[in-house]
């Protein structure tokens, strides 16, 4: 469809160009240390998080101001999530989970700004996040429980004959976790932003522009929802995995 539109009218657009990683200061060689648009938008995310959680709460008021309320809301939201899902002993890992949540949330929402680059739309980013969670949770599971952690795969409540089959399924699903964890986030971000871009490209055609603008508005509204939900889902899955590591016997 996009191809038809571009060939039919001579319009040249590329919904995936927004995901290109480009060096900030000219050149086209992307070394591992090169400051790129990835760097820029991650720095903006850091500044945004600092503004919300550090500057917003700088008055330390017992009766909070609006900005402090927002910071407290974010804190309470994640704190309660960690407490509810992993239990009291999971609260030790609250700063790590808060870091993940704030990073994903800010990256998702910053990506919605026009001309922005969405860092969480890249599998390289979400993959590292998911692998970090996977490795941390697996190591933590073995450190906390020793070999008993493997009992998570041996479902003792099932009939004995079924247990090897269930164990195989459990092991496969365990190793699929980081894949689904990362692709879910990157896929949602990529797809949403690409669709917005496709609609935006149609806005150049006079006949279609009202429809295209309506489509952009609708998709944008949906994307706001998706940005929050994906950050939430990413975080709560992290909590669930953490719970499995702390209490492997379900």
């Amino acid at each position: 469809m996009a191809t038809d539109a571009s060939t039919g009218t001579g319009l040249v657009f590329d919904p995936m160009a927004q995901f290109m990683v480009k060096p900030l200061f000219g050149g086209d060689v992307v070394n591992w240390y090169t400051p790129t648009n990835v760097t820029l938008w991650m720095v903006i995310a850091v500044l945004g998080i600092s503004a919300m959680l550090v500057m917003g709460t700088s008055r330390r008021a017992v009766i909070p101001t609006r900005s402090q309320s927002i910071g407290e809301l974010a804190y309470g939201f994640v704190y309660k999530m960690v407490e509810d899902v992993t239990g009291k002993d999971g609260l030790k890992y609250f700063p790590y989970i808060m870091t993940l949540f704030m990073f994903v949330l800010f990256s998702n929402f910053l990506g919605l700004l026009p001309m922005a680059f969405t860092t969480t739309s890249h599998i390289a980013v979400t993959g590292v996040l998911a692998m970090a969670v996977f490795l941390a949770v697996t190591i933590l599971g073995f450190v906390k429980n020793g070999p008993a952690f493997l009992g998570m795969f041996w479902v003792t409540s099932a009939p004995l004959a079924l247990r090897p089959i269930l164990a195989l399924i459990e092991v496969i699903s365990y190793f699929v976790r980081p894949v689904s964890h990362s692709i879910r986030l990157a896929g949602n971000m990529t797809a949403g932003h690409a669709v917005v871009k496709v609609f935006a490209a149609f806005a150049g055609l006079v006949a279609l522009s009202p429809l295209a603008i309506l489509g952009v508005v609708a998709m944008y509204g949906l994307e706001i929802l998706v940005c929050f939900i994906q950050a939430y889902v990413f975080t709560i899955l992290t909590c669930v995995y953490l719970k499995d590591a702390l209490h492997p016997h379900h």
């Binding site: 990683v21 992307v30 070394n31 591992w32 240390y33 090169t34 790129t36 990835v38 760097t39 991650m42 720095v43 995310a45 850091v46 998080i49 600092s50 959680l53 550090v54 700063p95 790590y96 808060m98 870091t99 704030m102 990073f103 860092t119 890249h122 390289a124 980013v125 590292v128 996040l129």
Partner: peptide
């Protein structure tokens, strides 16, 4: 571009973790 993204991601995560 993976190396670049992963490097900056790790820097960002460490900075956010420190701030938080």
């Amino acid at each position: 571009t993976f190396g670049n993204q992963i490097f900056w991601l790790l820097v960002t995560l460490v900075v956010i973790y420190m701030i938080l």
